[in-house]
Design a protein around this nucleic acid. Structure first.
Length: 742
DNA sequence: GACATATCTAAAGCC
DNA sequence: TAGATATGTC
């Protein structure tokens, strides 16, 4: 093999395969090629692929690694290169009974989880104002990530506390509900897998013996459970290589623990640490800008990216009048770039919040700019797709009562709220699922004769298709469902444009199925995996474990729009970062110190996506949530080295109109804060001030927004012009306001 | 039970 | 603003 393309440190990492290894890989430092070469090197040494495990966070990363190993070694069969969740799922499939699940268990995604939580809240008579779906979701997820059971939670938070008691009840009920539906959520995959290894020495020994060489990508983003899982698996042979960059830890909010990477050398005192600091991606101006921002973070492993490349172009910063002007400016700049030879697909717009995509979606069609927005999992969020998926899930797993609930009256079968309650009660009383309940004479008798007929038809159809599962293809199951459920004809009868679109989506979904089957044959020749599984089961699993970003087609010639979070691991010749404003980036909820550091890391990630050209923009005014606010420039802009930036500005029509960055904002922009008074009003609800004697004219300090001037008070609210954020109206709550002057 | 109207609230989203 | 959910009405 040819290792000439690697630098010294990369080569050292590739060849160090025995014992623990920490690779600190800065952005764009050739991390993936180091990892893939390392695997190829192991194969070359004759190490059995069966003994190698590489874990990533995204399917995209896993697929890329598989492909690149194939390119290097001509082979990738037998290697386990997959995401944490896929790994756990695969292990659990073989041992589900050991963690108390039935063999065909399904995986619930975020939406299913919320549905389950809603029913938990309802069934336990919890106040959904206090114990909201979002709150419980967060608390339960946090618990699971730390490996805490409901009882552990109660112990830690005190059983005298009413709140923790209620959370305990909800958590426990949620867990039982999922088990009853024979379902695991994403956290359960990890939790149960760790539990499996913890409680079964023989299983642990088997996997330790199997995975003699383990690699973990994006190690800075691992949470406690992932850390523990890896530790268990690696404990046998201790050939563990973790790769990461503490400066790119941007997922603390969902449990990532940056200490995992910072403390790796403590966990493995004999670990070799290799730093990859040479960047092969970006021009030096871009790198220096990134360095000038990230150096403001304390508590990081010091590392300075450098590159042999040219200085390159300066970073362009433009402050525009509002979000529309910002979109027009970026659109016209894209057209300029196009004229200079850039392709649309080389250009990305990376923002902090998904709503920021709106102005571009409205603007770009006028400029004939092709674009693709990558956000969450919107395709599967469509009602008709969810419905069809629920039908499929019910067939695969009759215990899935949520799937049942979703489809039993879709299309209408005259089984509404009341009838559904009856079905659920009967199922509860008889210890079975809803589908079985609907077959019982008692339930059928309680329905009207018309509904009864439809109900019988429904259960017979589900049973029949379930029986055929082994014999007919996935496509046929889908077609069968479309027709026999009456879903398609119900849409046809509607004769509306909306129904038309839904039908198109339903048809389009067929190609998703076809694609799945194609990729199944191509990428997963592993017979083992398919054993005892239905095609349908594999398909559903695949959908749940796939994210929108995985479907990003790099060949499509379109400008791509996504959040900076999604962009991690990607690179583009041209990057635009709009919304460089306090309140947007860093976001309003990030103004305490550790959160700010994470935002700064995100900023670092955003900047380092760019290879040749980087544009930053901000809007003086922005419409957010139906409100127009005056926006201050991001504090990250202040941290950036101005020598690397170009201060030319463009007015709202997109034509040249010079304003200098160094001048501050004289003239029209400086006047904005006063104009903005009539627009800007932000209400923070349910807050109480600690200090009651605050009056008009006082200067106060807010724990999040910093200092400002009080211009209005009444019984419930106080209005302040903050130095950094402009005017905000604050309601009563537990926020500390400190008087700092009169 | 189906449909219409009122109310609320708002990040990031890997798997 | 807009979407999701809760409540009210026929």
């Amino acid at each position: 093999m040819n290792y000439n393309l690697l630098n010294d440190n990369q080569l050292k990492a590739v060849k160090h395969i025995e014992g623990p290894l920490l690779i600190l890989a800065g952005a764009g430092s050739g991390k993936t090629s180091t990892m893939t070469n390392r695997i190829a090197y192991m194969l070359e040494l004759g190490i059995n692929p069966y003994n190698i495990l590489a874990v990533t966070f995204t399917n995209k990363a896993a697929n890329e690694m598989k492909n690149r190993v194939y390119d290097l070694a001509g082979e990738n069969r037998g290697l386990w290169i997959m995401t944490f969740h896929a790994l756990c799922l695969r292990i659990l499939r073989y041992h589900s009974e050991l963690v108390g699940y039935k063999a065909g268990f399904v995986v619930y995604d975020e939406n299913d989880k919320k549905t389950a939580l809603r029913s938990v809240i309802k069934n336990n008579g919890l106040d959904d104002k206090i114990y909201s779906v979002a709150y419980l979701n967060k608390v339960i997820s946090d618990c699971k990530e730390k490996g805490m059971s409901p009882a552990d939670y109660l112990k830690e938070n005190g059983d005298y506390d009413i709140r923790s008691k209620k959370v305990y009840i909800a958590y426990k009920a949620y867990r039982e509900l999922l088990k009853k539906n024979n379902a695991m959520d994403f956290d359960d995959l990890l939790l149960n897998c760790v539990k499996l290894l913890e409680e079964n020495d023989d299983v642990l020994e088997y996997y330790q013996n199997r995975f003699r060489y383990i690699m973990v990508d994006e190690y800075q983003d691992t949470n406690y459970l992932q850390y523990k899982l890896i530790k268990y698996l690696a404990d046998g042979y201790r050939n563990l290589c973790v790769v990461g960059d503490d400066d790119q830890c941007i997922y603390e909010w969902r449990g990532a623990d940056i200490r995992n990477i910072l403390d790796f050398e403590k966990d493995f005192p004999d670990a070799l640490t290799i730093k990859l600091e040479e960047n092969y991606r970006s021009d030096n101006n871009i790198l220096d800008l990134a360095n000038s921002v990230i150096k403001n973070n304390i508590g990081r492993k010091k590392k300075v990216l450098w590159s042999q490349k040219d200085r390159g172009d300066k970073i362009t910063y433009a402050r525009l009048d509002d979000e529309k002007a910002e979109a027009r400016y970026i659109a016209s700049e894209i057209l300029n770039l196009k004229e200079r030879g850039y392709e649309y697909k080389e250009i990305a717009i990376l923002y902090r919040k998904n709503i920021l995509s709106r102005s571009f979606e409205e603007c770009f069609p006028h400029y004939n700019i092709p674009y693709r927005v990558l956000a969450g999992s919107r395709y599967y969020d469509k009602k008709e797709i969810k419905d069809m998926l629920s039908y499929m899930r019910l067939i695969e797993n009759p215990d899935d009562d949520f799937a049942f609930e979703r489809v039993i009256n879709e299309p209408k079968r005259g089984i509404g709220k009341k009838a559904l309650e009856k079905i659920k009660d009967w199922a509860e009383a008889n210890g079975t699922n809803c589908l079985n309940a609907l077959k019982s004479q008692e339930v059928l008798d309680s329905l009207s004769s018309k509904s009864r007929g439809l109900a019988i038809e429904f259960t017979e159809m589900i049973d029949e298709i379930s029986c055929q599962l082994e014999n007919i293809t996935l496509e046929d199951i889908y077609d069968n469902l479309l027709v026999r459920t009456g879903y398609l004809s119900a849409l046809e009868n509607q004769n509306t444009i909306e129904a038309e679109t839904r039908m198109e989506n339903i048809m389009e979904f067929k190609s998703v199925i076809a694609n799945f089957k194609g990729s199944m044959d191509e990428f997963n020749p592993d017979e083992d995996l398919r054993k005892n599984r239905t095609e349908l089961g594999l398909f559903l699993e695949n959908i749940t474990l796939t994210a929108e970003i995985d479907n990003h087609d790099e060949k499509e010639n379109a400008v791509v729009l996504m959040t900076m979070h999604s962009a991690k691991g990607l690179e583009f010749p041209v990057v635009f970062i709009p919304g460089m404003e306090n309140g947007v980036f860093p976001g309003n909820n990030s103004f305490d110190n550790d959160k700010l550091e994470e935002e700064r890391r995100l900023c670092y990630v955003g900047i380092t996506r760019a290879k040749k050209k980087l544009y930053l923009t901000s809007a003086a005014e922005r419409m957010l949530y139906g409100r127009r606010d005056y926006m201050r420039e991001s504090l990250f802009l202040e941290e950036m080295d101005k020598n690397l930036m170009d201060g030319d500005r463009i007015d709202k029509e997109g034509h040249n109109k010079y304003r200098r960055l160094q001048d501050g904002y004289s003239g029209e922009v400086a006047a904005k804060p006063f104009d903005a008074l009539k627009y800007a009003k932000t209400t923070i609800k349910n807050k109480v001030f600690n200090n009651e004697d605050i009056n008009m004219g006082d200067r106060v300090k807010h724990e999040k927004f910093g200092e400002g001037l009080v211009i209005e008070t009444d019984a419930k609210t106080i209005t302040i012009i903050f130095d950094k954020f402009g005017r905000k109206k604050i309601g009563k709550g537990f926020v500390k306001l400190e008087k700092v002057g009169e």
